[in-house]
Structures are given as structure tokens and as C-alpha cells.
Design a protein around this nucleic acid. Sequence first.
DNA 1: TCTTGTTTTGCAAACGTTTGCAGAGAAAAG
DNA 2: CTTTTCTCTGCAAACGTTTGCAAAACAAGA
Lengths: 355, 355
Amino acid sequence: MTGRPTITQLAAELGIAPSTVSRAFTRPNLLKPETVALVQKAAEAAGYVPNHHARALSTGRAGAIGLIVPDIANPFFPPLVRAAQNYASDLGLSVFLADTDEDPNREDRLISRMAPQVEGLIVVSSRLASARIRQIADSQRVAFINRDVPETYRVLLDTSAAIRSALTHLSELGHRRIAYVGGPPQSWANKQRHSAVDNFSKAHALEVTHFSADPGTYEAAKALGDSVAASGVTAVIAFDDVIAHGLMGGFAAAGVDVPKDLSVIGCDDTLATTTFPALSTIAVNVGAAARRAVAALSENPGSTSLTGARIIFEGTLVLRGTTGAVRPTSSPLTLEPELDHPATRRVQTGRGSDS
Amino acid sequence: MTGRPTITQLAAELGIAPSTVSRAFTRPNLLKPETVALVQKAAEAAGYVPNHHARALSTGRAGAIGLIVPDIANPFFPPLVRAAQNYASDLGLSVFLADTDEDPNREDRLISRMAPQVEGLIVVSSRLASARIRQIADSQRVAFINRDVPETYRVLLDTSAAIRSALTHLSELGHRRIAYVGGPPQSWANKQRHSAVDNFSKAHALEVTHFSADPGTYEAAKALGDSVAASGVTAVIAFDDVIAHGLMGGFAAAGVDVPKDLSVIGCDDTLATTTFPALSTIAVNVGAAARRAVAALSENPGSTSLTGARIIFEGTLVLRGTTGAVRPTSSPLTLEPELDHPATRRVQTGRGSDS
DNA sequence: TCTTGTTTTGCAAACGTTTGCAGAGAAAAG
DNA sequence: CTTTTCTCTGCAAACGTTTGCAAAACAAGA
């Protein structure tokens, strides 16, 4: 009828003051237990639910956080938003979700628009320039995931140690020539993985060829399959599982057997068991990262920005079915032969603050 | 310093009334253009952003909608939330996302908790009982997707026509014994697809065996691979692409070739191009459904509930690489032979209001 | 019975907007 | 130069909470 009942209506009905009703919910220990019970019964009966907006206006606390991701359709993100949402829910917070569509401008707009109405923001895999990020972090409560800009609050899923394990493992299997197939070039994770591969290889006399499946899609990776197979490498490390999966699709189409002809290791463990053979990959604790970020936002609700921090969760190598010993004869596969040693295509090796 | 500037502060600074400032944003045509410009400049300079909570409190419009899904990690949902979010954003609405974890109680709680703070709710693939749904629909503005309860506002992705096409196609290829591998039993889509297969088969002398990959996961489906292969069917229609994918995993492990030994057709077109061979499937317009639901919520903002409606978007069969002619000799595959004609396992054929 | 102290409740202001109503000018009409 | 009509702006109340402060009620100590 008259819409949802309000605290004032409840109070009138019970012949008590609105403030008392309010306190029955927010600070019941200040009230006589019987009063609390009375109010609760009436509230229950009337179907009263508190108005978040009024509360937010009064307390200055929004009761919500914002979560911004580049592309929710990428399988890396759903588990993350799930974890964030669950944990936020436990803390009594709702979560606004927004998708930037990989567009930095959209991301920037989204941040400005959401920031004022929430307790804080979680920005995952930001595509913004470092300078802008620092600027934002100065005036907004925002936690970044997988973006490493100094003096911001950031939680990072670090795979470099796991990548080193992966490379030593490959090396023990006899692999000497490996490929790294990168993803979105602006991605911090991509840069990080790229250099992890480079550094280790340099130190251990492995020869690495770089490829880039630029938008990071299955199709892009699949299209790269032939070139990778023909490049003479015997193992490949992919930026993430969807690229690994795409490569495997390309390999299968080209008749290249994994792991007999080529070993492949993915990253993120998003699809691992859904490929055949099951994908060896680097598992990464997105849930922990998400929860850490949520927790950070829920603390110190007063402050206008988060104090800088660099939280790291390390990934771990998990071996499944796509890695094996190098073929007895490591002679090139029978594909249209390219240049003997194709000039190793280097894809941006920048090691700035957000590498 | 003093936090974000407010309308009142802006007004004071400019020596005008708060209402004028407010109108400069909400009804600029009521004001002298110069005044509007003046206010806008000052707002820009001061970094003013309107406070959504205050606005919501004053207008009674929340400026946000809620989106509730059973499991964001299931690849069916991300494109849907993406479409919903994009369209909502165009309409100036934010979106709250929540995940019920397939738990009806959690879903119920979530609905009650979110409903009061939003313009309306979109509930996808609800696992709630029909009676409860009707009850909710009576008092809340909620649009359901893929749940068919009379007198509610619901948009349905109807695949039955496409399933008929799929079956006639299989039939033309010579298939006579097919399997339907179902997903979550409470799912409307599952019941609908189940009966579509049944009805058509009955009418066209196809023999259908039912299986259920109950929680609907890749693993469950993969584990079912052997039984399906051994059941003597020559084609299978899966509830969705992840089940189809799981089955293909199982088949691959068992040495069963797709499509030579067995044809498979998925549903939803969520992974289609990422399998090898590429999965034949039924494409479904989740984006349209999501947009329709958002639009419904944004209309008639005054009303306390949505008027009943049944919007249908039909799926279409898309043939890729997993369907082929039945094998010349349709003799049973060489797996441990089960009973000759395993009693067709029937999985819940209920055709109630939410079938 | 009168203090004094404690617990429980009420009053009223505040949070930042929006909006109906009315007042002030300015323009148009007489 | 009035009167009327319009355009523009201001006043103040309202939205539903929370919360500092003070009043009231009660209990305890004297």
C-alpha cells in the first residue's frame, strides 16, 4: 500500500521515538532488551527493511564497494568477482560491478562516476597510465589488483617464481628452445611474465622466442598456432590459459601433438581441467587477492585514500598433461619452414613501474 | 580537505541558491543558459559530483538495478551480466551483482536485501519455488530470465525450435538413437530442453536415452563420457556447452572420435569455437534478453511491481564441426558392454509451470 | 526522603538532494 | 505608464536515517 514502512512509521505505531527504533537495529545494547524485542517483532510483522540510501546519507558510509574489470567475459575475472562479492557480502557490503571493455577512457569515467557512491573501489588489471593511477589513488579509496604502481594499494598475483619453476621443469625435460606467447600488451601480468621468462632464460641458456596473441583471445592464439609450431621451439609458455587453449586448438588443427611434439604451460588455472590433455598451468589465488582488496577497503572507513601497500600472492606450478620430455629427434616439424632462426620477435620489454 | 564539495557549498560559493545549482544539472532548460554555464564551470573546477544517495533519498529513485545469478563462474552468465551492465550504464543506472552459489535460500535472502535499494531486480535462472517467485513478483519490481512463472515478467531464451532443427538435422544424417545429457535439474532451461528432445523424438521415431550431469560441471559431464559412449547412441544433445565440452573430454579420453563415432550438439554457444573440433551448438541471444530485462525495470519507475509478460527470444542452430553422418556400421563401440538396451534413465520429466 | 548515579528514551539537527510554491524581474500587451 | 504574462530564481519542506545531547525513569546509597 503505502510502500515500505519507515522507521518513523514503525515508531508511531509503537508510540515510541524514531531514534529508539533506529537504535534497536544499530545499537541494541543501548536499549532495554524488551524494547528491542518489541521493535523487532513489529519490524518483522510490518516487513520493515532499512533504507540504505538514507543510512548512507546520514552516516556517510555507502555500504557498497565498486569492482571494475576490463572484461567480465574473460574467464580470469568471474572467480575473482565471485570471491569479492562473497566476502563483501559477509562484511555487509554490496558490490557494484562494471566492465570497461578494455577501454581506458571508459575505465577512467567509470572510476570517477562510481567512486563517490561507494566505500571504495577495486580496479582489476587497470589499463590506465601510471600517472593517472597515482592521481586517482591520491584522492579515492581504491585498491588495485594486478597493477603495480608505487605508493598505491595494490595486490599482485606474482607468477615469476612459478614461471622459474616451470622453466626449470621444462629444462629438466630437455627443452632448450621455448616460446612465450604474450597477451594484452598493457597488462601488468603480461609484462611481468614476459620478463620472468626472459630473465630466467638468459641465466640458464634457454633460447626464447616471443609471440603476442594481442587481444588475448582464443582465436588470436589459435591463429598463432602454425607460426609457433614452425618456429622450432619445443615448449611454450602462454600468458594465460585461454591463450594456451587457443594454441592447443591451433596445434590440433595442424596435427601437432601435445605434449609429444610440443609442451605447453598456461597460466591462471582458469580452464585447466577442461582441455584435453589437461593443461599444465600456473595456479594463482585470485580469491585471496579479491578478499584482501575488499578487506583493505573496509578498513579505516574514514580516510580519503588508502595508504600505499604492495601485497603479493605467489602462483604455483601445477603439472598436468601438457608437458613432456622433448622429442628424441628435435628436428623441425613438417610445416612450411620459415627462416631458419626467425628473428626473435620481441614484444615490448619495458620494465618501468608498471612492468 | 573538506571532502567532496556539495551542492550547497557550490551555491554559497556562487552566491546563488542550492536549488538553482541542482536545477543546473537536472533541468537546465528551466534556467538561463548563462547560469547553467556558470554553475557547470564552478562544478567542474571544484570537482563536484552529485551524491547518489541523497538524490535517491529525495527522488525515491535508486539509480541502480540488481542482478542475481546462480553462479557467475558458469560461462553462460558473464556475457549476460556484461550486456546488462552496458545497457544499464547507457540508461544511467549502476548494477549490483550478486551470486547465489546455486543456493535457493541465499537467493531468497539476496532478493529481500537488494530489492529495497534498487530500481528493480533481474533474477537469472532462479532456483526458487514457483510459489515463492510469484509472491516476490507481487511486491517487488523483478524481471526473471529463464524462469517461466505465469503472471511474472519473464524473458525466456527458448531453444525448443532450435532443438527440433538439431534433431531433424541429426535425423537426416542417419542418427536414430540419441542421448540428452541434462544439467541442473531445477533449471527451467534444462526442463524445457529435456521435453523438447522428448517430444520431437516421440513424434519422429527417434530413440532417446537420458543422462544427467547433475551439478552441470565439466567434470560431471566428463565422468559421464564412458556411459554415454557405451549406451549405443550415435549422437548426443547436451544441456549446455560446458556439458558438451565435458563429454567431449570424456570421449577423447576413451578414444571415441567426435564426430566420426559420435555427434555432439551443445547449447548456449558459450564455448563453441574453443573446442576441437569446434562445437555445433544452439546460439542464444543472452544480450537481447538482458537488455530487455533492464529496459523493463527502467520503465514505469513508479509502480511497485512489473506487470506480467512473457518475452521470448528463440535460439538458432549453428552447425560446426561436431556433427556428422552416422557411422556406416552402427555397431556398439568397443567399451565394456553394458546391458544391451540400458533402461532409458529418465530424469524428472515434470512439466509444471516452470518446466 | 533526598541525593547521586545509571540506564533508558526522546528531541532535534544533520546528511545532500529535489521540488512545489511563490516572489522578482523582464518582456509583452494594452 | 499600467497591467498582464513569462522567465528565472529563491525559500523551505521533504526523503529516512543516525546521533549528540538532554530529559526521564529508575535504582541505590545515605
